[in-house]
């Protein structure tokens, strides 16, 4: 689904990632671990070009989205992303946060299809919908997802009135509302109070069980061991280890990983 080849990312003179190759299959749950400053977040952010790679390719469904000529927005609509600091829209209520992008995209599609129809070109008939129809569909979908994370009663609150855990669950729902093919998580529990970590991890585990393709940067070793199909260890800008969880934790090959594990597992 995602294929990274020869990815290099530099910030000025500093090389953060060097010649990374990585393949993520449909339905796979990949956890990225590594010491801080190792480039794991940068690697994740390159997957949807939130950071533009300095060189190399990122294929998503066979299209190189690192190519500047590609309309990145179209592809990002199919790549959900959850941030450490939630990044919910502060000027919108929970339900507006969730509905904004799906409604916007559907409206745009409808507009484009009507124009094509008008000029007698081929178009997808289902794309042409009324605005009211688009909105009620998006609302229905939003409430269905909010029910899954148990936040229906917060639908009309502003983000500032939610706890960290609630915000992150809304952020996950917001990403899911676009019906993405893959979900990227950038340290989703790192900014949370300890007692709220569980509720977010629970939602992520449910999501994993539903078969979603997931790439997760985290420090939650338990989650990595339980959910991951593969764990990738990033250190000093390279992938130092890429193994299933049992092998990763019980039989680490690279000395760098052994050193890391001895520090984080007490």
């Amino acid at each position: 689904m995602i294929e990274v080849c020869n990815l290099t990312k530099k910030f000025g003179d500093l090389t953060v990632l060097e010649n990374i190759d990585l393949k993520i299959e449909k339905g796979e749950k990949v956890v990225i671990l590594g010491p801080s400053g190792s480039g794991k977040s940068t690697l994740l952010r390159c997957l949807n070009c939130m950071e533009d790679p300095t060189s190399g390719c990122i294929f998503f469904h066979g299209v190189d989205i690192a190519d500047m000529k590609v309309d990145i927005n179209v592809h990002r609509q199919k790549i959900g992303m959850v941030f450490q600091h939630f990044n919910l829209f502060n000027n919108k209520t929970v339900i507006e946060n969730i509905m904004l992008a799906p409604v916007y995209v559907a409206k745009k599609k409808a507009r484009r299809a009507s124009i094509r129809k008008f000029f007698g070109k081929s178009y997808v008939a289902e794309d042409i919908k009324k605005v009211s129809e688009i909105k009620s569909e998006a609302r229905e979908n939003a409430f269905r997802l909010l029910t899954q994370v148990d936040l229906v009663e917060k639908a009309n609150e502003y983000p500032s009135r939610l706890s960290g855990g609630q915000k992150q669950r809304v952020a996950i729902v917001r990403a899911l509302a676009m019906n993405p093919d893959v979900m990227l998580f950038d340290e989703p529990t790192s900014a949370l109070d300890p007692e709220m970590v569980g509720e977010v991890l629970e939602v992520m585990k449910d999501l994993a069980e539903s078969g979603m393709t997931m790439v997760v940067v985290t420090h939650e070793m338990g989650f990595a061991r339980e959910v991951a199909d593969r764990i990738i260890f990033v250190a000093d800008g390279i992938i130092a280890e890429d193994a299933p969880p049992e092998e990763f934790f019980d039989n680490p090959k690279s000395p760098r990983l052994r050193e890391f594990l001895s520090k984080v597992i007490h």
Binding site: N73, H75, R76, I79, H85, F86, N90
Partner: peptide, 22 residues
Amino acid sequence: DPGQMEGGRAMGLSFGTTMMKI
């Protein structure tokens, strides 16, 4: 907060749309 722009762009909204709406 720059995260607001990031949040919008990650959803696949363009720079202009995120600017105007968020």
